[in-house]
Nucleic acid binder design. Structure first.
Length: 497
RNA sequence: GCCGCGUUCGUCUAGGGGUCUAGGACGCUGGCCUUUCACGCCGGUAACACGGGUUCGAAUCCCGUACGCGGUACCA
């Protein structure tokens, strides 16, 4: 059933443009990308826009943008082109119609003129007669209004009258469709349970099943890696490959991403749990693409080693489809936060500063690059998101407007104001304003004034930042500089008394 | 209902008959480091769904049950 080893690997990510790219969609794209890269193959993007009712114009640019942001480069598809263009199903209409007609001509499919009401009536009739799950299939098709049940003359009449019709696959009962899923091993379905699939809708557009099979064949796709929700559709697709006389690609069905409260991670479900769904949301909330990719890769896959932190290239190296699990995986925002902190802190300083800058601008702060780099260096070990640089390190960009009440109550003593004023004066003439020499100077200052270091450090921190947590006081002083330190020490002395 | 897939710590997982008194990571937690907060380091917490087989031996193989998830559209 699989293609010869020699054929070059070609995989595709085939989303429907019905909304913003979903986090689950990105994972599917990622696994396809990793597989293709690992095998030296080709990664194709195809837009499955056959549902006119659900079509959303912004979806496609969003898909492209999201994939780019995540670092998944396309080899073929909209925007980049390729030998199998167009990569839009809406533009391949003719091909589907021809092939559907071919199946009709060969007696493998047929025309059906039934209205939705007709089908509904059939279901009700059979249910009343004791059939628990009636479907449009071999058992019922001859009672329906189609080219199998009607005479040739009646069919002609319908056609002449312009009665809307669909083309259905004639599924032969009593067969067993067996295939080897690359992730879950052998899977079997009886054709008994498969109804006569609609291949071509009455609007002339194909259903997913038809378009998908034809495109995968035409585009020489060797491996179909998609979500588990497609597993029950696979026998339908295999039946179509057989009807066309084509060799099917290797199938691989990824485990679904589950919401922490169980069930598929749908938009609604995720919203309720406070979990972002679209890739754009993650981006807007300040997650790093490297972290999201790393996190997503581990949602259903693991390298079998104890390494957890991976770059995209390292993932390519380590990836194998066999190591993808088959059980559904629960989404865990806390783990993503951890990955984010890890990746954030291993970025080069200049790069980190660049990523933080938009957050500053949002908050209305403007600083020089060199200064920002000093700030992120001081902050990098204690942030989980880039926005934390602003949220937790506001004092790097403006004087504290208030002082932490609990901190003041606990550490600001009656002599603090005097000490801070004195220190400010001392520091004014301090030669080298760097962490090391400030460390020495403040130790000396404490000794001279015959107070413990604790009497100095906490009030200084409060004066400088207004809060009780943050980088080393000396390091911060160096970053802030003489002038600002001087000003803030005096200011705190004044305001806290 | 029917069909299919699945089931190891709360979560992501290692494990593919003996090396498992079940390992790692996130989370939570005790301590060390740090006169802050983090980081880091050292510890702790916590799992093989259940019942039958097969076998000298089962988390690992088979069957059944339970539970979960998916599908069951002229949506993908």
């Amino acid at each position: 059933m699989t293609l010869p080893v020699s054929s070059p690997v070609r995989v595709r990510f085939a989303p429907s443009p019905t909304g913003l790219l979903h986090i689950g969609g990105l994972r599917t794209a990622l696994y396809n990308y990793l597989f293709a890269q690992k095998k030296g193959g080709t990664f194709v993007l195809r837009i499955e826009d056959t549902d006119q009712g659900r079509y959303v114009a912004e979806a496609e640019p969003d898909i492209l943008d999201s994939l780019r942001w995540a670092g998944l480069k396309l080899d073929e598809g909209p925007g980049v082109g390729g030998p199998h263009a167009p990569y839009y199903q809406s533009q391949r209409k003719k091909r589907y119609q021809e092939l559907a007609q071919q199946l009709v001509d060969e007696g493998k499919a047929y025309l059906a003129f039934d209205t939705a009401d007709d089908i509904q009536a059939m279901r009700e009739r059979l249910q009343a007669a004791g059939n628990a799950s009636p479907t449009y299939n071999a058992a019922t098709r001859l009672q329906m209004n189609n080219s199998l049940a009607c005479s040739a003359a009646e069919v002609e009449e319908h056609l002449a009258a312009g009665t809307p019709f669909v083309i259905r696959l004639k599924v032969v009962p009593g067969e067993r469709v067996l295939f080897e899923d690359a992730i879950r091993g052998p899977v079997a379905f009886d054709t008994e349970g498969i109804d006569d699939q609609v291949l071509l809708k009455s609007d002339g557009l194909p259903t997913y099943h038809l378009a998908n099979v034809i495109d995968d064949h035409d585009m020489a796709i060797t491996h179909v890696i998609r979500g588990e929700e497609w597993l029950p559709s696979t026998p339908k697709h295999l039946l179509l490959y057989k009807a066309f006389g084509w060799r099917p690609p290797q199938m691989a069905h990824l485990p679904l991403i589950l919401s922490p409260n169980g069930g598929k991670l749908s938009k609604r479900n995720a919203d309720r749990m406070g979990i972002p769904v679209s890739v754009q949301q993650y981006r807007a909330e300040g997650y790093e693409p490297e972290a999201l990719i790393n996190f997503l890769a581990f949602l259903g896959w693991n390298p079998g080693t104890e390494q957890e932190l991976f770059s995209l290239d390292e993932l390519v190296d380590a990836f194998s489809i066999e190591r993808v699990g088959s059980a559904g995986v629960q989404f865990n925002l806390e783990k993503l936060a951890w990955f984010n902190a890890q990746h954030l802190r291993q970025l080069p300083l200049a790069e980190l500063a660049q990523r933080v800058r938009p957050e500053l601008e949002k908050a209305g702060y403007e600083v020089e690059d060199a200064y920002l780099q000093n700030v992120v260096q001081a902050m990098r070990e204690r942030i989980h998101r880039r926005s934390d640089v602003v949220n937790d390190g506001r004092y790097f960009f403006e004087d504290p407007v208030e002082y932490d009440e609990k901190g003041v109550a606990k550490r600001w003593k009656p002599d603090s104001a005097t000490l801070m004023r004195l220190l400010a004066e001392t520091l004014l003439s301090h030669p080298d304003f760097n962490a090391k020499s400030l460390d020495d100077a403040i130790h000396a200052f404490a000794e001279e004034n015959e107070v413990g270091l604790g009497r100095i450090m906490a009030p200084v921190r409060l004066a400088l930042t207004g809060v009780m947590s943050g980088p080393s006081v000396f390091e911060m002083m160096e970053v802030l500089g003489r002038e600002i330190c001087n000003r803030r020490l005096k200011r705190a002395a004044e305001r806290l008394g």
